[in-house]
Design a protein around this nucleic acid. Structure first.
Lengths: 125, 125
DNA sequence: GCTATTCTACTACAAATGTAGAAAGCGTCA
DNA sequence: TGACGCTTTCTACATTTGTAGTAGAATAGC
């Protein structure tokens, strides 16, 4: 149940507010995305076929609810990336992030912040 | 220049030892992968078309060298995943890894180890 | 009830991806 | 120098992904 790029777009919207109709998804997609209404409908139908969302009907109108959680989708994507690109090692994935020599970015700072928070929390438990 | 899954397989082998011929790549692919020789050749040709590898000829035999580094491929893949699934935030990606409630896995332990190492190193500088 | 609008269902189609066969070329060893 | 085996080149084809049009059904407003 790995999602494609376009599917992520749809699901990101759906996870933010569900259940939702095709129209609602269309309205909530980021501005940069200019898909025809039927494109979105097609995606939702396909996602339903794959059991990533559930389609129920209110009258003749389809209403969509995520079945796959965002958590799980993320887990799956990370797992897959780790396997494919980091020899299966989440550790090595994290190390890569930590060791990026990209000093002009705030990413590292952000990650460091995350780690500090985490270390703190871990300590607190 | 994002790599597909099959391309990662090939490139993982190539990064381990290059330059390499199609035959060498074929021999070094993991056992679980049973691709026809020509499949591998096709992939290498396509990777050359995309300038991910360079093909040179020794006589009529093609010899392949990575152009894209593993580092860069990883960076690109992580960036893309962060954008698509973590709202562009590497921090949130790391947090996800840290907060997985998957106690039966060694992953967390491994990640913690990575972080400790990193924190130590960071301290040392 | 009739019309304008909105949805759904179905179909389509190009590009990318995964996978490989056929045929022809070349190198090598007997 | 011929046959065998490996290599390349070209072609092929199914599937998945991205994207959308058309036609007919449902609905809502007048």
């Amino acid at each position: 149940m790995k999602l494609t790029e376009a599917e992520w777009q749809i699901m990101n919207v759906l996870w933010e507010g569900w259940p939702a109709t095709t129209r609602q998804v269309a309205d909530r997609l980021p501005d940069e995305i200019n898909w025809a209404y039927t494109t979105i409908k097609t995606m939702l139908t396909r996602l339903a076929d794959k059991h990533v969302v559930k389609e129920t009907k209110k009258g003749s109108i389809g209403i969509y609810t995520p079945l796959l959680t965002r958590q799980d989708a993320r887990r799956i994507a990370l797992k897959s990336l780790a396997n494919q690109a980091f020899d299966g090692s989440a550790k090595s994935l994290v190390m890569h992030l930590l060791e990026q020599d990209n000093p002009d970015s705030d990413e590292l700072t952000e990650i460091n912040k995350a780690i500090s928070e985490y270390v703190k929390k871990r300590g607190a438990k």
